[in-house]
Structures are given as structure tokens and as C-alpha cells.
Design a protein around this nucleic acid. Sequence first.
RNA 1: CAGGUGAGGCGCCCUAUCGGGGAGCUGGAUGCUCUCAGGAAAGUCCGGGCAGCACAGGGCGGCACGCUGUGGAAAUCACAGAUGGGCGUAAGCUUAUGCGACUUGCGUAACAGAAAAUGACCGGCCCUCAGGGGCCAAGGGUGAAAACGCGGGGUAAGAGCCCACGGGCAUAUAUGGCGACAUAUAUGCAGUACGCGGCCGUGCGCUGCAAGGCCAAAUAUACCGGCACAUAAGGGUUGCCCGCCCUUUGCCGGGGGGUAGGCUGCAUCAGAUAAAUGAUAGGGGAGCGCUCCGGCGCUUACAGAACCCGGCUUACAGUCUCACCUUUUUU
RNA 2: GGUGAGGUGGGUGAGUGGCUGAAACCACCAGUUUGCUAAACUGACGUACUCGAUUAGGGUACCGGGGGUUCGAAUCCCCCCCUCACCG
Length: 116
Amino acid sequence: MSFSFDKEQRLRHRETISDLSAKGSPLFKFPIKAYCLPGGAPVSRYAVAVPKKNFKRAIKRNLLKRRIREAIRLNQAECLDGFAGDYLFVYIAKDVCEYAAIEAAVREILTKSRPQ
RNA sequence: CAGGUGAGGCGCCCUAUCGGGGAGCUGGAUGCUCUCAGGAAAGUCCGGGCAGCACAGGGCGGCACGCUGUGGAAAUCACAGAUGGGCGUAAGCUUAUGCGACUUGCGUAACAGAAAAUGACCGGCCCUCAGGGGCCAAGGGUGAAAACGCGGGGUAAGAGCCCACGGGCAUAUAUGGCGACAUAUAUGCAGUACGCGGCCGUGCGCUGCAAGGCCAAAUAUACCGGCACAUAAGGGUUGCCCGCCCUUUGCCGGGGGGUAGGCUGCAUCAGAUAAAUGAUAGGGGAGCGCUCCGGCGCUUACAGAACCCGGCUUACAGUCUCACCUUUUUU
RNA sequence: GGUGAGGUGGGUGAGUGGCUGAAACCACCAGUUUGCUAAACUGACGUACUCGAUUAGGGUACCGGGGGUUCGAAUCCCCCCCUCACCG
């Protein structure tokens, strides 16, 4: 089981991301809202966003993005079990949450996104 | 010892597990080695480099700045100093500064007050035909500000009207200083404060890396070539006819500009581009509080590069170094 | 990343050195009208602290926040905070 998180797994390009937020199926678990769309690439790809409106200082946005990315990295193999899709994670809460809360939310979203 | 003033510095460390960006080793993958955030990276308040556009040269206009010296590419920069004002017992901090001012640019000075700059309400004095006419600016009162201060002479009463002392401004000379300026002497001047679009000096062309350069899907298409359809319409070729050529329709191929997008700009031991520099756990250090002196609890800041430099400003747990001041006590 | 504009009662928004705590419109509140309502008309209307036994009435401060200039600042200057627009 690998815990790696390559450059290939980063979702980029404005068009793919706006597609994802428009067509992707929304999943919600406080403090994170996510959009998911299956297919697109052989590996799962992720984008993480923290709105500037809620956190004015760049260091807090960076901290939250790092925590979310870390939670994805450690749990993607276990929760997805071979499934691959494109994801957009958006941090909704107005305060900085601890890593444990973020990890729980990420686990639940990843598990729910996999087709049964 | 306590409190304070000024200048400068540091701004957590180690281990384990799992990861990330860049460079190199190789033609490629795996792998290995090296390296990876700040003093403010922030605000974008100034100044440059750099890039594009404009530009013979000069002027007007506009904007910014305005005491002196040194440094500096330059700056609303730094250091040292000058003069005036404000705060503080003090160390010290802070703010202002060209000319127009020895009579002469312009404007403003609300309310109050007679008057806010050709001063006269109350008042003082002189004359009087008793209605008034004239002289004065000391005292009162208003105001943020009231016509140099004070003493003497002088006068009808008074007044820089005159004189002494003191204060202000200008000029000249001397001395000290690189200089701003200070001190002294002489002469002269006199209705205040503030501001300005006036004058003088210095600097500035404009826009900013989303600048600029390169590559370049899809769709439409300038232009070029070929084919098909049609012999229809329009135009040209001599006025007319025939003939010939071009255009109007469709398809195929080439093709320029240019959009999405990408690369570059962008590195000198950071060099990303939905953006790395980390996450979790344990231990240690430092500080504070409680303490049954075994320990326990809390805190460990402000904050994250995006073309690069020089400054300024703002945020910052704690801690260190040096110099100085004040109070009290002791010698 | 860069460039520019703005912040004044509950809302919109004038005022650009002096009787402006602040015009005007809307909203809110009270009254007139009506069987009741709407519309119309009339009046009143900021917040905090404070003086006043209370009612009435008065004082001080506040124009995003903090300094400065000035006799006097919403207005002029400096620094922060916030909002909006533009540049591919």
C-alpha cells in the first residue's frame, strides 16, 4: 500500500475545475464540502481550496490546505480501493480545525464517493 | 534595587514514521546525493534595475520635494548637525524650515467685538452759539489672535512722539564654523497671524512582469491552388453580338493574423505556476502560575517567497548586549 | 501579482476649514382621516457617557480607527483597518 502523493495527482487547469464544480456530485461533511466526478485519468486527482474570504492571511490557508492534502494522502488507498476519480475539496468552516477533524471528514467523503 | 530613555541582536531544538518542490548523477524508469522559506517574505508608501511604447532639439504646462554637511544609482532614505515651537524632573522624544517680509503680489481671519488691519464702543482732553465740532489711543471690555514690553521725559489729554534698557526684522563689517548658523559692533526699519493657484531651485516621458517575447487546438476566415455545379445573374474586355476572364454556391488542400491553452520572462545554494518548503507522535530547552518541593498545568509570537534590489511603515510570545537618566538607601 | 476608487443616522446620500450632530428622500414611531386598512397630511425620530429625585431640559464625545497641522477638522497631511472595481 503506497502513501505517495505525486504531481500527477494534482488537478490543474481552470476548465477541469469549473467542470468539476458544475457537474460533479456534491458531498458534504463538516468542515469540508467536496465535488466528485469519476474517470478522467487512471489515477485519482485532487484539488484543494480554502476561500480567501474566510481566511485573510495566507499562512492559515496554507496550513489548512496542507492538512487536507495530508489526510487525502494517508487515506486514499484504503478508502477508494482501486477507484479513480477527480475531486475538489473546499474548506467551509470559519475557524482553523484540528487535523483529527479534517481527517475524519476526508475519510467519510472518500468512502462515500466510491460506487457500491 | 526599582522605574525609565536610546541603539543593536536572537527569534526554539532533537528523534522516529510517512510525504513534497528543485538540481545533479544516467538516453529513460527505479534509485542515490545535494538543497528548500522571512525580519518583516506583509502593506504597496517611495526610489531604482528590467521590459514595451513614445521621442531631432528646446519651451510651456503638470506632479513631487524644499534648513546645512556627508554617504548614496536614487528616494517621503541613513548618519551627524543648525534654528524656532511642544512634551518630559532628566536621559531624551517630537514637529516645522526656500523667496515674497526695512514701506510694494493675492486671499482668509466664522461667532463675539467699536475695530481682524485705512482701528475707536465705553473712555481721556480741548473748543462751543449747548445742537455739536475737533484731538488721542493710555485704561476697560470681546476674542484663538488687538497694533513691541517696561520705566522716564513730554503733552490740553496722549502716543516709539523722544530717550535709556530689553525684544523683533534687514543690511554691512569683524570673529568662529566646510556649512546651516552663532557672537559682537554700526546703520536703518516697524499693523498681526495663517495660507496660496505667485516666484525661485532640484527631480520626473508614459505604462507596468497580468510588462514583453515565442509556440499554438477548435470555430470562423483574408489570400492562394484544385475539383464540382451552372451556362443562371452581375462586372470587365471597343458601341452591339459571339468568345474569353473574374465574382456569386459547395467540397478538398495550403495558409496568415489571432482565441482557448502552453512555454519563456524566472534565478546566483528557494524558484513554484490550483502553486513545494510539510503532517503526526514523543522528548528536551526557555518563560509564567500553583505546589504536599516529588512534580503538575499553561504558553512558545508575528507571520508564508511569486521578476529582482535599496528604503519607509505596520505586526511581533519571549529573551540577550551596550550606553545613559531619575528616585531612594549605603559608603 | 499590479492599478485605481471609496467608507457620513436603520438604508440611499449631500456637505471639502467656522451657527452641521449633520440637508434631502425612504424606513421606523405617534396623531389626523376611515367601519377597518392602504394612500394622503401633520409631528417626532442617532448612539454612548453624564448633570438633573423624576418629567422636561442641558453638557461632553462620536462622520471606519489612531496620530498631526490649526484658535477651530467630517473637510487638510501621515499611518492602519475594511469594501468595491479594473488589468489574462
